[in-house]
Amino acid sequence: MTETSSAPASAPVSASVFTPKSRVRAFFEAWPPLILLALAWIAAMLLLAAFGDLVAPADYMAMDLRARLAPPVGMGGDWAHPLGTDELGRDVLSRLIASIRISLTIAFLATLVSAVLGVSLGFLAAYFRGKAEQAILMLVDAQAAMPFMIIALAVLAFLGNSLTLFTLLMGFYGWERIARIARGLAIAAQEQGYASAARDLGASPWRVYGRHILPNIASTLLVSMTLNFPEVILLESGLSFLGLGVQPPETSLGAMVGYGRDYIQSAPWIMLAPSAAIVLTTLCISLIGDWLRDILDPTLS
């Protein structure tokens, strides 16, 4: 406040109606505490997924048959196995870290696949209109009419299972929503000045859609991708829980809950640790997604 020095000394300092927000308050208004917590949790999950091997107390496949079903710290266990061990004496914390890595990687790749698929089909529908658009919209409706979990189960039955196929299959989840959004936004964008200007300058459709329209609608697409992500985690963990998703010796959060349920009475920690990880992670991503939508997309209330 440099003006105060030039102001008459008699003027009261509080004469101004404007009271500047404290920096702390402005910071928390831009970044609500709940969102900060959610972001911190997701950051921790990503760090664990990337560098978990450095923190993990043991190899996630290493068995220690003398320490089977050891309880976690707080339930009578010791720090050798902070979250206890499973029926083969494998360290639950180490398995949890390996599971988080697999589950997040699958969800991330699957969301990318579904975004690419959805945006491509949405743009094709917007560009060609007519019959091609009708065909794509019919596919969208048919996909939306069938619960994806059932389709996924059928595909796994007919084609068998492998980690690559499974990840790709998860990539088909949610493409129809992204395609619908991408088509709607692209049709609206085509009518705007910048798109027709680029077209009139002789830009190819690839250029108009890829370099001009896509960046302009990216924020809305990003929000719907963020909201797709936790649903893929839930779907993947559901299928893995049933024993039809990620196969041993690999592990995922759902697979851990799946075999942990056999020990629900004697060793509930095997199932509780991954359950908590699933619930917290999906909750945090959903919160961040809603928050991003409020910031990035003023058209949606």
Binding site: P230, L234, G238, F241, V257, I264, P268, S275, V279, L283
Partner: peptide
Amino acid sequence: GFTVPSFVMGLTLSLIFAV
């Protein structure tokens, strides 16, 4: 309803009311 998968909900209820 959006964040707790049905298998976690089912097993938790089972842990409390059955086990």
